[in-house]
């Protein structure tokens, strides 16, 4: 049928870009406002990790010996990496809830930038994780952890953690668009994230694990991330430089590769999934 539907006037690229930025900011602000009204939303990135620190540094840590080193210095980089790993969780929960409550539909019926819905969510989630990182770093300093190398290396360690958090945020964005319930999002935390962070060098050296488990732990990419952070902060126990696997021998490089891989895979997947929602 020949249609007489109007043709839109095209808007300059710069206008659209401006809207994309301001729309993303509006969505980020929405999440920050949530936090203002419900500060308990921050428990996940504050009290909970602090509990972990207390638990490991003082309870389990009292019985854990790190060869020639100080357990708290060994522990904190593990805690930092673990927290960045969990950067994938808040965005998952937020997206699932928004979809269930029809908020995403409302956004999609508005003339706002498409990208802003995802960028805003991811941005807010990333900010939340960074807040958690700051709190953890302060907590580490408080219990005696110190970065032992120069400013450059320390900033490198923080940058690597940020990159990893960003990568995990893109994983969470995709998964948040896939899973159907908040419960499913939570069980993902238990079924996937916990083994990944625990079957690794995060809290204890892998040397004492049974052979099969040690192999898994040494190849676990999370171990490489932790090793990289320990390397850059100068917290590696003496004699544990290098490692039995390529990833542990080149921890910074393998973390960079791993993080970029996650971003390269999951960002496009999230965008694809978001677009596909139109067809279902």
């Amino acid at each position: 049928m020949a249609s007489l539907a109007s043709e839109p006037r095209s808007r300059p690229f710069i206008t659209r870009l401006g809207w994309a930025v301001s729309d993303s900011w509006t969505v980020v602000r929405r999440h920050l406002t949530h936090i203002r009204y419900m500060p308990d939303k921050l428990l996940d990135v504050t009290i909970q990790p602090i509990m972990f620190v207390v638990l490991f540094a003082y309870v389990f840590g009292s019985a854990i010996k790190v060869p020639g080193g100080n357990y708290r210095s060994f522990l904190m980089p593990g805690i930092y990496a673990q927290n960045m790993m969990f950067a994938s969780m808040p965005i998952m929960a937020a997206l699932v809830q928004d979809m269930q409550r029809g908020v995403i539909d409302r956004f999609r019926s508005l003339p706002m930038s498409r990208a802003a819905v995802l960028v805003g969510h991811a941005g807010a989630s990333f900010i939340e994780s960074m807040l958690g990182l700051v709190i953890m770093l302060l907590c580490g300093l408080f219990i005696g952890w110190r970065p032992e190398l120069g400013v450059g290396s320390t900033l490198g360690g923080i940058g690597l953690l940020m990159l990893f958090a960003f990568a995990m945020t893109s994983v969470g964005t995709f998964l948040g668009l896939i899973v159907k319930s908040v419960e499913a999002a939570q069980s993902f935390g238990f079924i996937v994230m916990f083994p990944l962070t625990f079957i690794a060098n995060t809290f204890v050296p892998t040397a004492g694990m049974p052979v099969w488990l040690r192999t898994v732990a040494n190849w676990n990419p999370v171990s490489a991330v932790v090793q990289a952070v320990r390397t850059l902060f100068g917290n590696l126990p003496p004699g544990s430089h290098g490692g039995p696997t390529w990833t542990l021998a080149h921890p910074v490089l393998s973390t960079l590769i791993f993080a970029c891989l996650l971003i390269a895979v999951f960002m496009p997947l999230a965008v694809w999934r978001f677009r596909r929602m139109l067809l279902e």
Partner: peptide, 30 residues
Amino acid sequence: ERIGLAGQQASVDEYLTGRDNLVMVGRLYH
């Protein structure tokens, strides 16, 4: 840009105030 939609379920943000909700939507209409 030319429509308003009120879906079958009230798609308002529970953790914002009523005013916040409307201001946010206004901002998203630019």
